[in-house]
Design a protein around this nucleic acid. Structure first.
Length: 280
DNA sequence: GACAACCTGACC
DNA sequence: GGTCAGGTTGTC
């Protein structure tokens, strides 16, 4: 579900709502969602005061006064929502945090149960986070170009690799490559500095616009107050299979790249060189 | 690099 | 019954 703009929207909402509050109690209904033992998890959070809420790539970090951090990844269908404490709890809600002095509860809900919550101890950064690459706002066009030049992998799977560049997922990669007129299978080291610069600019613009729209809701995504995003109305290729490209009119094509559904325009996004040795 | 795995629900 | 889904990880 969530990519950088959705996670950023959630983080802003939680920062506003949670900073300065204390977690009065933790209710764990499904302990598989939590990487720590239930005892450690509960002990670390009960009574803890929240001093900051941050984002790193697609991770949500809730910093506690104890110097511990609650690290959350929503994967496909995870949601963090704020609801009145007495609101009914459905079968997909797995962790609940009572807050004080606030009548609301923070709930982790996740239909597919792929998401994870984990406590990061002071001085022991989680390997997932230390391996994480910078996001597109933490990297210059020049830096991106130099990194691309070292990789011969296809550009799309590379942009999805969180240890190469963090924050992008399937929607925003397809949208960015289309708007940069780059074929998803282009070898990364085959991009010129001009192309890399355009890609960098386009990625930032798409992400900024999506954050302004409070994310993209295809099906499950909700902000912390339960509201859906608005960027789905601005998508030009993702989920637009068969519709005419707004630049050249060619029907948008759906294919499979690196195992992921991939939307592109055969007219605007052409591969620079065909695979070698195919002509007589 | 391709593919299965982790899960559930929606859709054909 | 099968396929697909906004993500990541582990295996051939």
């Amino acid at each position: 579900m969530p990519e950088l703009p959705e996670v950023e929207t959630i983080v802003r909402g939680l920062r506003e709502a949670l900073t300065g509050l204390r977690i009065r109690a933790v209710h764990l209904r499904n302990s598989k969602i939590v990487r720590n033992s239930p005892a450690l998890f509960r002990r670390s959070l009960t009574g803890a005061r929240i001093c900051a809420v941050r984002r790193q790539g697609k991770f949500i970090l809730i910093d506690l006064e104890s110097a511990r951090t609650l690290v959350i990844h929503l994967r496909m269908t995870g949601q963090l929502i704020l609801v009145p404490e007495r609101a009914p709890v459905d079968q997909h809600t797995h962790v609940l945090f009572d807050l004080t002095p606030e009548g609301r509860q923070l709930r982790y809900r996740d239909v597919r149960k792929f998401g994870r919550l984990e406590i990061q101890e002071p001085g022991w950064p989680l390997p997932h986070l230390t391996a994480l690459a910078p996001d597109p706002f933490e990297l210059s066009a020049r830096e991106l170009f130099l990194k691309l030049r070292e990789k011969k992998r296809a550009i799309k799977p590379l942009l999805l690799d969180q240890n190469f560049l963090s924050g992008l997922g399937n929607i925003y990669v397809d949208e960015s490559l289309y708007r940069s007129q780059i074929h998803p299978l282009t070898p990364a080291n085959g991009l010129s500095e001009v192309q890399a610069g355009r890609l960098h600019r386009v990625i930032r613009r798409v992400l900024r616009q999506a954050i302004l729209a409070k994310g993209t809701t295809v099906s499950d995504y909700r902000g912390p107050e339960g509201i859906i995003g608005g960027f789905q109305h601005f998508l030009r290729v993702y989920g637009c299979t068969g519709e005419p490209c707004r630049v050249c009119g060619t029907p948008i094509q759906k294919s499979r790249v690196g195992g992921r559904g991939t939307h592109s325009c055969p007219g605007c996004q052409s591969l620079p060189k065909l695979p070698p040795a195919n002509q007589a």
